[in-house]
Design a protein around this nucleic acid. Structure first.
Lengths: 252, 252
DNA sequence: AGGTTCATTTGACCTGGATCAAGCAACGTC
DNA sequence: GACGTTGCTTGATCCAGGTCAAATGAACCT
């Protein structure tokens, strides 16, 4: 009886070492022994449903979170009721990194669809990381990666046209899905047009028109939230072809 | 003789513990004993001059760098010869954090004026950080801070008007100078109008017109690179007053 | 089946800021 | 001390994408 209880508990409490995301997530590059130790501090919550918060703006920071299944958006609410969408997060991605400094969450995170989230208490992670150099290294890498990602986004928002932004967005989703073993050319977007526009610094109407144009040009087929990338090369070419973005000359 | 040699060497080789930036920089929060240890791995190079590189896009990553005096700009060169300015860095600020992940510099850094730069070999810093928990913590904090900073910039580029962008830029400089004990209302900009525009996602002409407008409105006095903030409150108000930026409604 | 609500699309129009095109001032350099 | 060269400013025009308005369509009640 106790035994069966333990077994079912263990079945529910999927461990990091059995998780398909291990190569994308925190455990990347750790020995199985160390994964075991990391596993000891990870909390797995029951699934959250569309609209539930992972954490909210202003809450005290205690943990980092990893999307296990589903998807999450992070955003900075503005006092007037508006919001600024900061990112969309797929399985294996770590959220809450921006809160380490101030020990307060400066953005909110809510799930876009039914999702499982792993919680990693930061102080315990920190302690663990000073005894596991490869974990420490992995944390530095992940923080650095986030900076690199923000930098790309900065380029997108500062210098690229609406067309380039949407193309980059779709290709980013596509590539991240591929890494997770999912179809990079046939997927459902879990966020609304409004959220995409907000994220890319564009009006909803512009996003909608661009989807229509991409479809007319044969780059993709769109049916509501279902996207089928018909011509990924052509989509990449949207990013490459010199547009208004590269009219900057000499430096010095 | 040997003694005098040692003395002059020590005088040149200003240590972290004597550095006025210690409270802003890596040593923040460390015991003087630990600062000593950190000091042991920091290399201090001879001053660089306007246009010299701290590191270049594509170089292998070995070290983080701290601006000691002067100022640095980081930017991503685009193949076509253009560039995307990523940031301007004042004394005490750490650069190169984005290169940790890939172990390659993905942007270039060049000094805007004669500057002293401290070099911190990363692998040694990493090793040291696993034996000094407060240093490890400080590193996590600094990386997280950088993410928070990028996030603000994202908001600026994605949602704010040209006027708000330039006001935010000037106020950011002003506040950072204040923290360093310099005048927050009277300063010289070490970067060109072109670089400011590039950084803020605006055309040079727009930047120039805005300086003129701000001056006409009595917010500041501008003479070439010399800025005198005449009415910092009014400048803050430029950011607060609802503009096109807050027309986003409900969430769900 | 019909109605309410919210998301998306489409059309018409407008504007902030880019682009184009001169001038102009500071700074060498010879 | 005239002469490029580079950086900054100013004026005139243009257009990508925002804003406003309305139609259409899903999804969800009841």
């Amino acid at each position: 009886m106790t035994a069966s209880k333990v077994i079912s508990f263990e079945a529910l409490r999927v461990a990091c070492k059995n998780c398909s995301l291990a190569t994308l997530c925190l455990p990347m590059g750790l020995t199985s022994d160390d994964v075991e130790r990391l596993d000891g501090i990870v909390k797995r919550a029951r699934p959250l449903h569309r609209g539930d918060y992972v954490f909210r703006n202003g809450e005290r920071f205690h943990s980092l979170y990893v999307v296990k299944t589903g998807s999450v958006k992070t955003y900075a609410p503005s006092p007037e009721g508006g919001e600024h969408v900061l990112g969309f997060h797929l399985p294996g991605e770590l959220i809450g990194l921006d809160a380490i400094e101030k020990e307060v969450h400066t953005c909110s995170a809510k799930v876009l669809e039914t999702s499982a989230i792993c919680e990693v208490p930061f102080s315990r992670l920190e302690t663990l990381s000073s005894t596991i150099p490869s974990l420490q290294h992995q944390l530095y890498r992940l923080l650095s990666k986030e900076i690199g990602h923000d930098t790309e986004l900065l380029l997108l928002l500062g210098k690229k046209s609406a067309e380039e932004r949407l193309a980059a967005f779709l290709l980013s989703i596509s590539k991240r899905l591929r890494k997770r073993g999912l179809s990079p050319t046939d997927f459902y977007l879990s966020m609304s047009r409004y959220e995409i526009g907000n994220y890319l610094g564009l009006a909803v109407e512009t996003v909608s028109r661009l989807f229509t144009r991409f479809q007319d040009d044969g780059l993709l087929k769109v049916d509501r939230k279902h996207i089928e990338l018909r011509d990924p090369e052509a989509m990449e070419a949207v990013l490459t072809r010199a547009t208004m973005s590269d009219r900057q000359q000499r430096v010095r």
